[in-house]
Design a protein around this nucleic acid. Structure first.
Lengths: 220, 220
DNA sequence: GCCTGTGAATCCATTCACAGCT
DNA sequence: AGCTGTGAATGGATTCACAGGC
């Protein structure tokens, strides 16, 4: 939750809002587009209008991490992209292990967005004996659940992705955490119990739909 | 953003936090579990500990919509479930149309969670001529993009789901909005431009991964 | 005694507004 | 003149703490 701004070591720690991290990830994606379009320099004003947020928000978000702009000018798109890459630790690959190769699991490992952003599925596990040994995508063979512990260690898996039915999810999460994994992206519709040291993000699209439905109804 | 609490009409409008709506959706899922486990009554204290949030938060969230508990006792699980069902408008079906039947699109229409929560995919569209006519799931045949407008109207589609590549996403969103759709769940990695009247939720798992990666790094 | 419902207090995030640099 | 970086002000959301009811 805290950070040494400007990376020169000894200042007081500053709390960085969680929302800022997520927006920075968004900025990264939009800066990529701008660069592809040949934009070299952009003001917080213009950039914010592309992102559909407040210009001061952009400047404040970036200011948590350093001073990346030029007064009177704006931000160099390529440079800012590189800075954000460092902030988000997107300047290296992250190794993922996925458990549960049903429709959703398969869709995720085949989704090239993960690869493009530096996320590599290096292992896949399923409890269905019929699936074990299947090559779900080039060079990725489905392993048994019993292999989770060893493979996590040997392949240095850093983030676990759970796409099993809810009933198995807690057991799978425990296996992953026992194997030393500190971060989990959980697509199963349960709240995973976990120690404070482990990070878990839950993804449930039907919650998004409930939210949309609520607002649709309210407007009508 | 506003609501008439207790549903008797003429009180001043109260702003309901967006986060409250999302938590209410979470409560709904957890109450289903509790009911399945045979729990009949639960205090905000116990319920909050299951949800891993603050008890006052639970009570405050619910209080925006009415008084559902009994002082000195707690909340009746079945009754609260029914009340939340009404709040979230989960007491009826919602019709979805999906555009883009790649890996992710197919995984979504085959995911039984949507069905269980009352969300029905009633139409599927893709631009690939080879896919048109395919039965992607029982009774759901892929249509051409040209049919979006007519089908949306005839089938009374209420929410659009976009699972196309980013390049097509804006065009698809425009088609859906032109056809009168007021809510979109967008899985493509772009920020959709839209009028204020239309609701759009963006889903990008790689943003979740970026967030996890950031925190993993910071801790190490 | 126990637990809900809620105003008040606190905490956090966003936006304003301007000093400071180019 | 133009735009960043940031303290101060505002606006929201969460939590506290207790009055009120079972």
């Amino acid at each position: 939750m805290t950070h040494f701004p400007h990376s020169n070591g000894m200042e007081k720690q500053i709390k960085i809002p969680e929302a800022t991290i997520d927006r920075i990830a968004l900025y990264y994606r939009i800066l990529e587009d701008l660069l592809a379009q040949g934009v070299q320099v952009i003001s917080s004003q213009k950039f914010a209008s592309v992102c559909r947020i407040n210009p001061a928000q952009v400047r404040k978000d970036l200011s948590f991490f350093g001073e990346f702009g030029v007064r009177g000018v704006g931000y160099n798109v390529r440079d800012l992209l590189m800075e954000i890459k460092k902030i988000l630790v997107s300047d290296r690959e992250w190794k993922l292990g996925i458990v549960g190769l049903g429709n959703m699991g398969k869709a995720l490992v085949r989704d090239e967005n993960f690869f493009r952003r530096g996320y590599r599925f290096v292992a896949a596990f399923d409890s269905d004996p019929a699936k074990i040994g299947q090559e779900v995508v080039k060079d990725l063979f489905i392993r048994s659940m019993a292999e989770i512990s060893l493979a996590t260690d040997q392949l240095r898996i850093e983030i676990g992705v759970i796409t099993t039915p809810p009933l198995h999810a807690q057991r799978v999460a425990d296996l992953l955490m026992d194997a030393g994994i500190m971060a989990i992206l959980n697509f199963s519709a349960i709240q995973v119990r976990k120690p404070d040291c482990c990070l878990v993000h839950n993804v449930d699209f039907t919650v998004n739909l409930d939210n949309l439905a609520y607002h649709l109804k309210k407007r009508s």
